[in-house]
Design a protein around this nucleic acid. Structure first.
Length: 255
DNA sequence: ATGGCTTCATAGTGAAGA
């Protein structure tokens, strides 16, 4: 089973690239974040024509998440249970016996801001919910844009990023708290190239200068982690004409 | 340099992302 995640930064703008990934990678699951598309405008016809089912919840301008998958997703649910969040950041569904949760963690703007507080609160609520979900679904995959670079090696210059949003200690602690639930960072199960990143700023030639961060992750429950065979970042997608600022992350699990 | 680039909503600029 091949599962993938990509922050598309507008599904409307990136639809052709999404279809390209589906055709080239043939993933069983593709989680999307920042679709920025209301449900009425979701490109269902194109997704269906590509041979994929989907569940989605979007809003205009900001946020929006979707799961594209082979076979019908079961027990789809939107949001974090018992957390009334108007921002569309979480969607889940069961695909071939695997519980897939697609998350778009808040950006946080800057350390100490209101949005930063919202981010940390949001992560705490996500954690509390996932603790229960892991019991309910031993085969659980948590894919998405976490907006957290967990370690020094996930940042092009840890000194520059020290204490900054995406790399502050409370955010890294929140990531560790997810790991403490029993999740495994699938990317680090394998030897990886140095300077492996999943996001590069549009500004200042961030990609050309390789000033990246690894903030998109595929976390797996123990039961899935022991079956995981590969995990990689599709860096070439960031070189495309009119790219997203994120690259997809893809993992393969032996079922 | 609180800038840099991209998208969206909107009709000239402003918010937000990371």
């Amino acid at each position: 089973m091949k599962i993938a995640t990509w922050n598309v930064n507008s599904l409307k703008v990136r639809l052709a690239q999404v279809l390209e990934i589906l055709a080239a990678q043939n993933p069983d699951v593709l989680c999307l974040q920042e679709t920025k598309t209301e449900d009425a405008n979701f490109p269902l016809t194109d997704i269906t024509a590509a041979g994929y089912e989907s569940v989605f919840c979007g809003q205009r301008t900001y946020n929006g998440v979707a799961i594209l998958c082979r076979g019908k997703p079961e027990d789809a649910c939107i949001g974090i249970r018992d957390f009334d969040d108007p921002q569309k950041r979480v969607i889940a569904g069961t695909v071939s016996g695997v519980r897939v949760i697609c998350v778009y963690v808040p950006n946080g703007e800057s350390v100490g801001s209101e949005k930063y507080k919202y981010k940390l609160d949001w992560l705490a609520r996500l954690n509390a919910w996932l603790k229960q979900e892991l019991i309910k679904y031993p085969k659980l995959a948590l894919l998405g844009d976490y907006n957290i670079a967990p370690e020094d090696r996930d940042v092009h210059d840890p000194k520059v990023w020290e204490g900054k949003v995406l790399f502050s200690e409370p955010e890294k602690a929140a990531f560790k708290d997810l790991i403490a639930l029993g999740f495994v960072d699938s990317f680090r199960l394998f030897d990886q190239p140095a300077k492996s990143y999943s996001w590069w700023d549009y500004r200042m030639n961030g990609f050309k200068r390789d000033l990246g961060l690894r903030i998109d992750h595929i976390l797996l429950s123990a039961e899935l982690a022991k079956r995981c065979k590969t995990c990689s970042i599709d860096r070439p997608m960031r070189s495309k004409e009119r790219p997203s600022d994120h690259a997809p992350v893809i993992a393969e699990i032996e079922m």
